[in-house]
Design a protein around this nucleic acid. Structure first.
Lengths: 106, 106
DNA sequence: ATCTTCCATCGCAATTCACCGATCAACTGG
DNA sequence: CCAGTTGATCGGTGAATTGCGATGGAAGAT
């Protein structure tokens, strides 16, 4: 994961509504998360929510599963974890010099 | 740290140049980091770099120390660490339901 | 076949962002 | 006091983002 990718993902997370959407998806039972549910919890127009979902989708943070007439969305826990370690690595790389020696390109 | 704050900080990190600036500050010896150094490493206009620095400053990720004719910048490791745990908490909150019980408001 | 529900996508306006050159305050050196 | 350097800030431009309502297509129901 390079700087650009991290920055990209960060930007996707850099909006409260998007964080909220992730939270909503997390609280649903696995697979129960359709767009209407999200729209319903979020005083925003359906098109706006769809837009935000698209951003999260493009960032690879969530997954779309077409399911008949309604789509299902769910978190991509693998990606989240990946981001977690990439971010951890970033923070480590920023840590005071003395600390990082063999963590150069994790 | 609320959603808005996290989102804000994320957005500050959501730009490759800003990540690069953090990296540059990290590699300098403690306190040796003036704006010109950064500008020099970054094929960007000085005003643009200053702008990015301001964003990082506003996000509380770096610190300005006026020092005679030139300013010094350095990372706020405390804030970085704080962000690290906030982010960790966020990821935890997004983890599959069974896992999170007492981590509600860290 | 028709009607309804769901939702991605398309304009469109308003706002913000990224970048630049120019300017200006503040400090240093002569 | 005058010149030089550093770097924050202002003004402007073009691109991207955020929000919306409206459109349209796909799947399920009647």
């Amino acid at each position: 994961m390079h700087d650009d990718d991290i920055a990209n993902t960060m930007r996707a997370l850099g909006h409260p509504v998007r964080l909220e959407i992730l939270r909503i998806l997390a609280t649903q039972q696995q697979g129960q998360c359709c767009c209407a549910d999200v729209t319903d919890s979020l005083t925003l127009a359906q098109s706006t929510v769809s837009q935000h979902i698209k951003v999260l989708l493009d960032a690879g943070l969530i997954e779309r599963k077409p399911h008949g007439t309604r789509n299902r969305y769910c978190l991509r826990h693998d990606r989240l974890a990946e981001l977690g370690s990439a971010f951890g690595g970033l923070l480590k790389g920023l840590a005071p010099v003395a600390a990082n020696k063999e963590t150069e390109q994790a």
